[in-house]
Design a binder for these strands. Structure first.
Lengths: 380, 380
DNA sequence: TGGCAGACTTAGATCGATCTAAGTTGTGTT
DNA sequence: AACACAACTTAGATCGATCTAAGTCTGCCA
């Protein structure tokens, strides 16, 4: 188990916790539920037709300059606010994009979300956010909502790499969909991901070079495609180096700190534990560091750990993490781009972008920490 | 400045970075742009009126059981998908909520977002997410979008505590608005926040008890209400303990790691630097730890640091952070609740919820690290 | 004086649901 | 047989925009 009382485990509380104070301000906010100003109101005010106002609104150049100005004056005088929803009904475009991730609190996804929000925001889209917490049922519910809404398209990181039911659901939806970070078996679509096999191989190569022969793989949900690919790369590398491939050293878990903590605990209880581990992601690795520390061991000295993604914390935890960098911002940006293209042209062929990750060596495998060394001189 | 090349600064790259591979799959996705199935289609198929279908859809109990079943059969046969957008136009309720935060990558906000998504999702709402990056112009743009959409209400953490222009904008919008974490001068609304004054006082009390007399306050944007309140608590406590109150020890910065790094660097360059600092938030504190470490000093030994919020990293960084815990999940949950109430009844008085934070003592002020001590025995 | 092109403008249908007010049944009562 | 009433059902207006196809107006030229 994770240490008791997850949030406050390794500290003690000095002042009494969470007392709630509540002020109720007597004064209610002003309530004049003025009805909305619509095109009809503007039209009446400017003595033109609704159609003309609509033309002005959309900057269609056929409107005479004088009319245009008259309408604009009316709009600002009456305080007109465009109603996208009404327009969407007619145009069949909502300019809303669904974004479904598995865990917002994972900085890997947080960075992806920021990149997507930036890119899509400046393209005039708005983001409907959903968090699945890695559960397929919530994923189905969220997708259904986004389909009903409706959104113009969905960016999705699937919780599982195969689900016949869900595949049928999204295929039938006929919504433009771009998958990212993880793929979905039997569903052909645009995709942005990482060369996980290569990344995992590189990590294992590094561990072997440092002398490790007993190397575990810890964390991540079994059904995540990214994990499967990383396992392949991991096993490939182990075989290449004639290391032991042991199923009991490949542990699944929640892809977060808690999962890493539990997995590491499990490894340490084995009769003959491994000496190193490749972790599904950085959060798992950070959990593993904690478990080692709770067991009186030190990551980097007694046990070597490699993470995945290179989130900001990887640089900041102690020991800092050697990790496979996957540039989440780039993933988000490219995914957004693919979706915008797909929406523009539904019939174009699917594109799959695979970004190549790179290993960042820090402290967690025992290499001495050397912040000031010039990077170039250390590259091989 | 932050260390060069923010992402890869303290490690070195072993494999060549980010090569892009791209596959273009020749096979295009099936393109049968079937027109949407609407109530009219169902009505025709089941030989009833559109009105009846609508009644079935909304589970209005007046419909005869037989009719109801006939309609439901037609719906599933034709693969009907509800169109919220169309319904919204008529009902004037979109069941979409705008959520505007200043920085998604700050775990404090990530945790708030998750809590809000949970709470609102189960209440049948969908979330439109916006990230302001602490800029007022983006905040204005986002708010305008959410107003146009339109959303049923907005949850907002304002980038600045006063902006006449923005206040007018949101007041005129007549949208239900709940502020959280930071308030906005001259704008009366529901609010969920933290007793920042109390929190900062507690933190300074703690530092003074440990023997510190020269205490700085670092990080955060000058205009954030939360920072202003923390500064008040900080100054109050300094005066109470007859410590020096020095404006040059109150530094503003971006409320993130980089801001903390820069601020700490600045402090260390002063002729007579302070010996401790209260940080605007945990991210700033973590940046400060890095700056100390880059200067060859150790947080907790050479310099005492207190953070704010108690995000997950606070427990995990080295040294782990003594910090003022503000329960972000609770803030999000309460904010969501207030907004739902406000939407239900626009005329009720405004409520302001102030959560009381609590100090969590860990390593960053020099107290020895003791993970296994029972919490109860150490409370005062 | 009539015709015609070019420059605008607009009536009315439309998107897909909801909602009101009125309509149609069928049953039981007198 | 007439009537009240409950139990359903429905036509048509409506929400606020867009879009099509047809209109008006002006000026110019034959």
């Amino acid at each position: 188990m994770f240490p008791p009382s997850a949030r406050h485990s390794t500290g003690f509380v000095v002042s009494p916790p969470g007392i709630l104070s509540q002020d109720v301000i007597a004064r209610a906010p002003a309530i004049e539920a003025k009805p909305r100003v619509t095109l009809r109101d503007i039209a009446l005010d400017a003595s033109v037709s609704r159609a003309t106002v609509s033309l002005v609104l959309r900057d269609v150049p056929v409107v005479a300059k004088k009319t245009r100005e008259k309408v604009l004056r009316s709009m600002s005088r009456l305080g007109y606010v465009y109603h996208r929803g009404a327009a969407s009904l007619r145009t069949q475009r909502t300019h809303a994009i669904g974004l479904i991730v598995t865990d917002i609190t994972n900085p890997f996804f947080a960075e992806i979300i920021v990149a997507i929000e930036d890119k899509l925001g400046s393209a005039g889209y708005v983001i409907l956010l959903g968090n699945t917490s890695e559960t397929v049922s919530k994923q189905q519910r969220l997708f259904a909502t986004m389909q009903e809404y409706p959104t113009d398209g969905v960016l999705l990181c699937p919780a599982t790499d195969r689900s016949a039911e869900f595949s049928v659901q999204i295929r039938n939806s006929r919504l433009p969909i771009v998958l990212f970070a993880r793929s979905l078996a039997g569903f052909e679509s645009d995709y942005v991901g990482v060369d996980n096999i290569y990344g995992a191989q590189t990590a294992v190569d590094h561990l072997v070079q440092l002398g490790h022969r007993q190397i575990a793989f810890i964390g991540g949900a079994e059904e995540a495609s990214s994990r499967k690919e990383r396992i392949i790369g991991y096993e490939n590398a182990l075989r290449k180096h004639h290391c032991r491939v042991d199923l009991s050293w490949m542990l699944t878990s929640a892809p977060n700190r808690e999962g890493g903590y539990q997995s590491m605990q499990h490894l340490l209880r084995l009769p003959a534990p491994p000496t190193a581990a490749l972790c599904f992601n950085d959060m798992v690795a950070i959990g593993a560091i904690q478990a080692l520390s709770a067991a009186g061991q030190n990551a980097g000295l007694d046990f070597a750990l490699v993470g995945f993604n290179d989130v900001a914390e990887a640089r900041l935890c102690r020991p800092s993490l050697t990790t496979v960098a996957t540039t989440p911002g780039k993933i988000g940006e490219m995914a957004a781009e693919l979706l915008v293209d797909r929406i523009a042209r539904a019939d174009q062929p699917c594109r799959k972008l695979i970004l190549r990750p790179s290993l960042i060596v820090r402290e967690s495998c025992g290499r001495p920490f050397s912040p000031c060394l010039p990077i170039a001189s250390l590259n091989k």
